[in-house]
Design a protein around this nucleic acid. Structure first.
Lengths: 336, 336
DNA sequence: CTGAAAGCGCTAACAC
DNA sequence: GTGTTAGCGCTTTCAG
């Protein structure tokens, strides 16, 4: 910038004013400066600006695993919304390790991000909460609830609504034993889904549910499914609580040569690209992850603009497809 | 930091030395400083360090669309490798818009990233190349070839190997008309695949291929498939050049109620999570995207360390599955 | 309307 | 070993 100023024969402050569209600049000044800028192909150094202005126009995103389609779409939605407002996103994968969550939060705060978007692996992990409260960097939670001091800013999904609709349909189809293979119990989605299925089932005296929380992994999906199917009263319908879990569930079902939906009805949470081509197609509790990411970004920007805390809840809707059919129990007794 | 120095009764430079593990610090100094650091919970401001040191320990990643599973895994591999060396990743989605690629490159350079990882949408887009040559920020191409001045740093996939194996198997199964539904012709993967299928087919006088390049979209996948199947000599085997294209191809095939592999054999490029549960399972030309991302990150770090330019090529291997069977042409003439 | 000067937080020379 | 000082690139008072 010094170069540009010298070349144009003006002070650095004038160059700065021109580049920042300050109102008090004469046309002649603007012209001379711009000529010099073009001549050198000068581009302002953003790090200098950050230091001076105390703002980095950068947002940190702590995500479990970007290779998970749901999280990738959330990240996409957030990135696009942030970019539209001149912000850039620093992405850190915590591979569902709560310890890494906390380290990443600290690192991002040291890097002076203006705000954080958080989809942490464990809401109860103390170091995570401490890292957040030590810095006073604004943050928005993505489908998480933290036991923190400050009023919560978050975008959440209406998992209860989705699960409730699914359970009602399954009960209507005659299912009396429904299972949920959930992910980590330390995050909101699992807790909400568990609560919802238990409440929904409680409304029908002859319907029961079995819940297997654990982790958002194929391994847990498979192990829980095995356990359920080998139990004394195996469920006639299973709800898989996420993409990775679904894969484990499907693997176990395939290994037992069970036919969906004849032997077992299946519902999954969150859409996944090829699902429409499975036969039968999968009943899905859908939410719009790009919209979630966008909403999270907008909440963060609102927070940065000084607005009061708010939580946005987005819908999760049950979409019936071919993987659910009347329970064998409901039809079998009369025909066999 | 001033606070910490005052509290410990030492100079700021001493605090800096302690925090950076400079060899020439006495134990007593270290102790006093650390006490003060703990007391205030002091964390160094990375922006100050960046400005002073002229390095940001940040790498920019320009990606087409992070919600594409292949690219998400590449990003994951890169991020993990970078983080291990203390680098952080700025992610920008260009939604396959070459103009955005160029803008993102300029923005990242203004932000003083130490290097760039690039998976641009169009290798021939002049502004992209100009943005790269204007800054002299090191970069590594991810499966791209750019007509630039500097010697190329890149990680590439051996698409030729993968396509060649696939074609050979299909020919062995009796297929004589093979089609490739490719993505954008302005990127290396498409060019390599096209060249490979044409070369492979040229070795068999009675085998021909049809190529439909276009875009990495479901729409192109569907449109190209329709065109091929409605043509005079429809192919008996199709190779889909990517995840999105695959979806379009499958949609079109489903719409025509064709059975795979009876009516049509299908091969796809790049693994996608649920593919193993399709029936039949999909023959796939596989490459390890996490390894690609890791390799790209390592190349960039090598470049930053002053090593000479290199290109790493990773394998793409054909994995046979249920979606390929003998051609109807090969068996039909004798039996009908 | 424009220039001079201070300073954001940090580290690396250079003195002592 | 430790302190002093300068300056990374920028913007923003404050004077004029």
């Amino acid at each position: 910038m010094r170069q540009v100023a010298d070349r144009a024969g003006v002070a650095m402050s004038s160059v700065s004013r021109v580049l920042n569209n300050h109102p008090d600049v004469s046309e002649s000044m603007r012209a001379r400066v711009m000529t010099a800028v073009e001549e050198f192909g000068y581009e302002p150094n953003a790090v200098g600006q950050m230091l001076r202005q105390g703002a980095t126009k950068t947002v940190g995103f702590v995500v479990g695993d970007i290779s998970n389609h749901l999280q990738a779409e959330i990240a996409l939605g957030a990135e696009l919304a942030l970019e539209a407002q001149g912000y850039t996103m620093l992405l850190m994968n915590s591979v569902n390790n709560p310890q890494l969550d906390a380290e990443h939060i600290r690192l991002l705060i040291r890097r002076q991000v203006d705000g954080l978007l958080l989809s942490v692996a464990d809401e109860t992990h103390r170091p995570t909460i401490e890292a957040l409260e030590a810095g006073n960097t604004p943050y928005v939670l993505i489908d998480r609830e933290l036991d923190a001091q400050s009023p919560p800013w978050a975008v959440t999904s209406d998992h209860r609504g989705g699960i409730t609709s699914a359970v009602e349909e399954l009960v209507g189809l005659g299912h009396r034993r429904i299972a949920l293979v959930g992910g980590s119990p330390h995050v909101r989605p699992t807790r909400e889904r568990v609560a919802a299925i238990e409440e929904a089932v409680a409304r029908y005296p002859d319907v029961s549910c079995q819940v297997r929380s654990g982790a958002f992994t194929e391994g847990h999906g498979a192990a829980a499914t095995r356990e359920l199917l080998e139990g004394k009263l195996p469920p006639t319908a299973i709800i898989a609580g996420g993409n990775q879990i679904l894969i484990g569930v499907l693997r176990e079902i395939r290994g037992r040569a069970l036919a969906i939906p004849r032997d077992l009805s299946l519902v999954t949470c969150d859409r996944i690209p090829l699902a429409e081509f499975l036969s039968p197609s999968l009943s899905t509790i859908y939410r719009d992850p790009v919209a979630m990411g966008r909403a999270a970004a907008e909440l963060l920007l609102a927070q940065l603009a000084g607005q009061p805390a708010q939580v946005i809840t987005l819908p999760a809707t049950y979409e019936r497809a071919g993987s659910c059919s009347p329970s064998p129990d409901a039809v079998a007794p009369t025909h066999q």
